[in-house]
Design a protein around this nucleic acid. Structure first.
Lengths: 108, 108
DNA sequence: CTTCCATACCTAGAAACACTAGGCACAGAA
DNA sequence: TTCTGTGCCTAGTGTTTCTAGGTATGGAAG
């Protein structure tokens, strides 16, 4: 379970330049040292959702060798959205860590 | 959205000793500097779930002054579960951070 | 040349999770 | 006596991710 952070991972994977769904799965797997090995049924609907939300745009591309692919690219909104989600992640992680390590014995 | 880490927060809140649902909400709010302000509709079902799973046990308590409360306490499984979830969180956070900051330009 | 595997895309439905939006009830203060 | 804060609860909803399929092509192996 990616717990709501999938969008950030996908956007971050696209930061290096446009690419297609299958490659995004591999990029995320590689970057996470195989901690995240997303099934296709997770990534494709997410890409559609992000495109519909205007964070990505896509185009069909037929490379000189190989099969037809749908290549995704960050839009302006996507770039902003990524920055925003990174900040949100940092805030979230801090709050979790603080709460998990809190020794607060409730007063009274 | 707590993104699947609610259980860990609740268990951690109970680490300081047994207490009741309403106080858990306040403890989590205090520990997180108000980042997590959980509605009751979130906490109570979670407590029931955790009890059913054997991580918590509960008892009705009528304090000398004030109203009847349902007081929850960590079980052995709960203590172990918390330790496990802390480790899981650390692993998860590392993987996310690594993936979010990854510069890996996919080869070819 | 056929068969198989990796690549590549897709969707419908299920499951989990947290939240909304209510309801009930008691204690103590105003 | 009425209101506010405490305290517990559930049904239903929306979102997200996963399962479990399906389709199809390119290239390698036999």
């Amino acid at each position: 379970m990616l717990k709501g952070h999938l969008d950030a991972l996908v956007l971050a994977a696209l930061e290096g330049g446009p690419t297609h769904g299958y490659a995004i799965i591999e990029a995320i797997r590689a970057r996470s040292d195989a901690a995240f090995d997303l099934p296709e049924g997770t990534i494709y609907p997410a890409l559609h959702r992000l495109e519909k939300a205007g964070l990505l745009k896509s185009a069909w591309v037929t490379p000189p060798s190989g099969r037809k692919r749908r290549v995704y690219e960050l839009t302006k909104r996507g770039i902003d959205g990524l920055a925003e989600r990174r900040k949100a992640w940092t805030r979230f992680a801090k709050a979790i860590e603080q709460t998990l390590s809190g020794k607060t014995p409730w007063p009274a």
